[in-house]
């Protein structure tokens, strides 16, 4: 399976929302030793495209996402966001973490409103917008709850509202629904697709769950087992939209796609297993 390279324009810039070109990442592991987590690899996300990265545990999926978010500087390679080289944090992107990023000392409403308040929005305006977003994610009545008073799924909804309220052009998601149970994951997946359908942001979605990846995305890319992980597969997902994250799994095309992608993914998962890292 050939990996399509981002195409460069005359000025040498690559198009699309996110363009990672020849990215490699080394980590210092004490002394002069380095761990080559990611070998030079490239990944592009077009505007309005939903891309899922799937790979075995510890293959560097999250590392790649952190590079796109500007949280981590790659050892080599270029990061471009809407054609501009990325310096510092990627503030065009909203990032939804696997762990809870909510501030436990703020209520759900305040956690969402703070995103606007720190940009100088008046309190009343920020609060009204936050309430509107909480309503969108189905938590209108939970604004005064603190994070510990919400379930895992509810906290994820607040997290989504917190990220989406400032209308980022790009959405980066690191196994966002990982800690949730299977049913809640599917409900959250459908919610995500509904929200995404409104303005079709570019999405980079990291998951270890192949079914979730196929159900949600336009393209699934496979990362090889680390060290020196790289993108080794790229599968367009031609399932019809709008989708329901649960029902789409019954679609015959879903099975065909799953079978084809799993064949490649399985080999990588076994490699990781054999290396004793699982």
């Amino acid at each position: 399976m050939a990996v399509p390279m981002p195409t460069a324009d005359a000025a040498g810039r690559t198009g699309g929302a996110v363009a990672l070109t020849d990215i490699s990442i080394d980590f210092a592991i004490g002394g002069h030793a380095t761990y080559k987590a990611v070998a030079p690899t490239s990944l592009a996300v077009a505007e309005g495209e939903f891309v899922a990265i799937v790979g075995p545990t510890g293959c560097g999926k999250s590392t790649l996402l952190n590079v796109a978010a500007g949280l981590l500087k790659p050892t080599t390679g270029r990061v471009e966001i809407f054609g501009e080289p990325l310096t510092g944090l990627n503030l065009k992107a909203g990032y939804l973490f696997q762990q809870d990023g909510l501030m436990p000392w703020k209520s759900a409403l305040d956690n969402v409103a703070i995103t606007l308040e720190i940009r100088g929005a008046p309190r009343a305006e920020a609060e009204a917008a936050a309430l509107a977003w909480l309503t969108t994610v189905g938590l209108a009545k939970f604004g005064d709850r603190y994070p510990h008073q919400l379930s895992g799924g509810q906290r994820k909804r607040v997290g989504l509202a917190q990220v989406l309220i400032r209308e980022p052009k790009i959405l980066l998601m690191d196994e966002p629904f990982g800690p949730l149970d299977a049913q809640t994951r599917q409900i959250m997946g459908t919610l995500l697709l509904d929200l995404w359908a409104v303005d079709r942001k570019a999405v980079l979605f990291v998951t270890h769950d192949l079914e979730e990846a196929i159900a949600l995305s336009d393209r699934v890319v496979i990362m090889s087992a680390g060290p020196e992980a790289s993108i080794i597969g790229d599968y367009p997902i031609d399932l019809p939209r709008p989708r329901d994250a649960a029902d789409i799994r019954l679609h015959p095309r879903f099975h065909a796609l799953h079978k084809a992608i799993w064949a490649q993914l399985k080999a990588e998962v076994i490699k990781t297993y054999d290396s004793g890292r699982v």
Binding site: L91, A93, Y95, F97, Q99, M103, I114, I118
Partner: peptide, 13 residues
């Protein structure tokens, strides 16, 4: 928590 800190930075604090 590093997650809270990274999240706070990414929402632009």
């Amino acid at each position: 928590s590093p997650a809270i800190l990274a999240n706070a930075r990414l929402i632009g604090m």
